[in-house]
Amino acid sequence: MLLITCPVCSIAGDETEFTCGGLYTAPGDQRVYARGISREWWLCESGCGSWFGLARHTGNQRISAIWVPGEEPDALPGEIA
């Protein structure tokens, strides 16, 4: 079970308190998931209600970055282009 910290309200919680919104792409973007580090949208559902960015490895579930929209990190090591 993922442990996620919301970058907006700083509250850490189980994945059940958040909602994944799919790839961190613009609407209409046709890209699909692949194995490796993917950037995603997540919603702090039980907390502040903010959508934020998160980089997660879709295989081993390691979270390598988390950010407020607009403060996207540069390319992460191992990230899927």
């Binding site: 079970m1 994945e15 059940t16 994944c20 799919g22 998931y33 995603e40 879709t58 295989g59 081993n60």
Partner: peptide, 13 residues
């Protein structure tokens, strides 16, 4: 699971 992934692992929720 409520998010995509390839982990093939059991998860609790």
């Amino acid at each position: 699971d409520r998010y995509p992934g390839y982990s093939r692992r059991g998860s609790l929720p």
